[in-house]
């Protein structure tokens, strides 16, 4: 693939059951990046290949059919076969994003909330409603001193809409871990009612502890979220055709932030 110089290079990891990779690629490309969608077999064959990229993205889908539990088998495979280099990538402060199934993988692999530990300390469990939920929700962007520490979510409005589509999106962790996440300002998005108040089902679609929809690590470069920003790149994708400007949706800003961070 001919790579244009000065454009950041994104790798989207895919495997059996990965689904949202095409639209994720479109999202990054519109924001000005080169994108490769690469099968995990290729990455395992050539273990250092992953390090040559600037941004690592794990997309949504049903990797390995969600067998055993969502994201478990892919997390297991990535950790055992590519763990060393993935940890290197994470600690080098390069941007990493895990969306939906990708978030499940990051958490079950132990890359979030504490990549240093690289041990699973939280999980995404079955929705309280016991069913798959496909709907739009409102997200509150958590800010400290006017902004979030997460590079992906910088300069977003206090509340943005995004679509979710998952059966296992309930963020669960014990009290100690939760306390740490909150105190270190690692919560990026929380489910909310449209006016910022406490959300009831279905605006709280899964029963996540502390209504957590997305978190980052302490350094703010690794971001995992259940909602799908790649499905809100254009205004047209919003149910009422609302966007951040004439053409685009708020999801685009999230990817733009990571690209701009590298420039």
């Amino acid at each position: 693939m001919v790579k244009t110089m000065n454009k950041p290079n994104v790798i989207i990891v895919r495997t059996a059951g990965t689904n949202c990779d095409y639209e994720l690629q479109t999202a990054f490309e519109i924001c000005g990046a080169n994108v490769d969608r690469i099968h995990i077999n290729e990455l395992i064959e050539n273990k250092d290949k992953i390090l040559s990229y600037d941004i690592l993205a794990i997309p949504g889908g049903f990797s390995y059919g969600d067998d055993i539990a969502s994201g478990k088998i892919l997390a297991n495979e990535l950790k055992n076969k590519l763990g060393e280099n993935i940890k290197k990538f994470a600690l080098s402060k390069k941007p990493i994003i895990g969306i939906c199934n990708g978030f499940q993988v990051l958490v079950k692999m132990g890359l979030l909330p504490e990549p240093n530990k690289f041990e699973q300390t939280a999980t995404l469990s079955y929705n309280d409603s016991n069913k798959f939920e496909c709907r739009w929700v409102y997200l509150k962007t958590e800010k400290t001193d006017g902004n979030t520490k997460c590079i992906w979510a910088k300069n977003l409005p206090d509340i943005i809409p995004l679509p979710v589509a998952h059966g296992e999106g309930k963020f669960v962790a014990d009290d100690t871990v939760l306390k740490n996440i909150e105190e270190n300002n690692q919560v990026v998005f929380r489910y909310t009612a449209y006016d910022g108040r406490y959300p009831k089902y279905p605006l709280a679609p899964n029963g996540s502890f502390n209504q957590i929809a997305g978190i980052c690590n302490k350094d703010g470069n690794i971001f995992g979220l259940m909602p799908h920003p790649e499905r809100y790149i254009y205004k047209l994708q919003h149910p009422a055709r609302q966007g951040c400007d004439d053409k685009y949706g708020w999801g685009k800003k999230i990817f733009q932030n990571a690209i701009d961070f590298l420039k």
Binding site: G65, D67, I68, I73, N76
Partner: peptide, 15 residues
């Protein structure tokens, strides 16, 4: 048994 095939693969990945 579709799930069992995935589990067999994952066991291999564990080494």
């Amino acid at each position: 048994d579709t799930v069992s095939e995935s589990v067999v693969k994952a066991i291999k990945d564990l080494g």
